[in-house]
Design a protein around this nucleic acid. Structure first.
Lengths: 199, 199
DNA sequence: ATCACGGCTGACACTGAGTATCAAGTTACG
DNA sequence: CGTAACTTGATACTCAGTGTCAGCCGTGAT
């Protein structure tokens, strides 16, 4: 699921990438994402602008590349939960896997989400990644659906809705400093689908 | 809801904007969004690059500004449907209003959605607009909710899920050339929330 | 009619993202 | 050791988007 670095070169590349991102992230938090240029980052990291740009195709990726594996994490979790009959509980569990993956470093994640929240460009790019994950999820939902299981868009809608839940929950969670329990927050969010639409 | 042009200057500005967008749109469809530069557009429209840029802040807006009123259309529809007790039917009806608004020119909308679909930058920007509409919708849902109506994130989740439905439905609709009935498609999509999660 | 004012326009200059190329240095590996 | 593959930094380039400025033109008041 994570890009498995095999071969010494790949390992080195991975490490450099992590270090560059670390240095850059400090700058972003200190000065603001939009105010920092690639030239600044390169100088701060002690490499040339060219090199920096070779490791991260865009400025957004310098921050958001940590989210790249999430799509596969969700897909794998769905695969491992094939027995479950209920789309919503499968999705909820898969999202909890994604949350667990992201939450390995609580403080870092809270900081990232804060930065994302106040930077439109990062929001946009993150939503783009999210959209890339959706087809994988849809395929898993359809894979276990009976043929006469309603319109084919239903899987799309549920996958999209679940992904929205993830960001809403993470936004809520990070706004409160990462102290709440993500499982409970997910349950509260998914209640939007299971409780009557008006209490 | 639409930017109401009052005053002769505002009318003129509005008309120029529409004409520039018309010319530009042809170029985009012909050559591809990314391959067309502001210099190209300016030349095609017979104005300077500066002027073109003054009418549209970004290249994306040249295509997507037609979606700007949708947020208010949805919000107004929700206001007009205050009596309805059920969040999902309120949202479904409001989305139908939005769809009706957009569908005034079927052929144009199908073409736009096709262009958006094959242009990542346009997808991203459209999703950004969508996110801007969400708070307005959430406010309407919360406005009629009883205080003890579950977690506050529920309105957020429902609003986000509904907006996802809109794009999924419009994508489906335009992929089939705009021949299907949007009301029926919306019903099929919203079935994701009301039918059991596994048939 | 004239004048002053405000907005519109085009020209120009600038910053910064992202792409492409190339020569020189470095590392892996037979 | 030697070569082939990779990495780096330098440089040049395109294009989006911002800002400024002087000139123009319609409007409205005197």
């Amino acid at each position: 699921m994570s890009a498995a670095p095999v071969g010494t070169r790949e390992i080195g590349r991975h490490a450099v990438r992590a270090e560059l991102a670390r240095v850059a992230f400090n700058r972003f938090c200190l000065t603001g994402f939009d105010q920092v240029t690639f030239a600044d980052l390169a100088e701060a990291a002690g490499v040339s602008r060219s090199t920096f740009l070779r490791y991260f195709g865009t400025k957004e990726d310098v921050v958001l590349f940590v989210f790249d594996p999430v799509g596969d994490v969700i897909a794998d979790a769905l695969d491992a939960d094939r027995g479950n009959e209920d789309d919503w509980s499968r999705l909820r569990n898969a999202l909890e896997s994604a949350a667990d993956f992201l939450v390995r470093d609580v403080q870092h994640l809270v900081t990232i989400l804060g930065l994302v929240d106040q930077t439109p460009a990062l929001c946009a790019r993150l939503r783009e990644k999210q959209t890339e994950w959706r087809p994988k999820i849809v395929a898993r939902l359809r894979g276990t659906a009976s043929p006469a299981d309603g319109s084919p868009v239903i899987a799309d809608v549920r996958a999209a809705a679940a992904l929205e839940c993830l960001w809403i929950v993470l936004g809520q969670w990070s706004a409160n400093g990462g102290r709440e329990d993500l499982g409970e927050l997910l349950d509260a969010a998914f209640a939007a689908f299971s409780t009557p639409a008006r209490a």
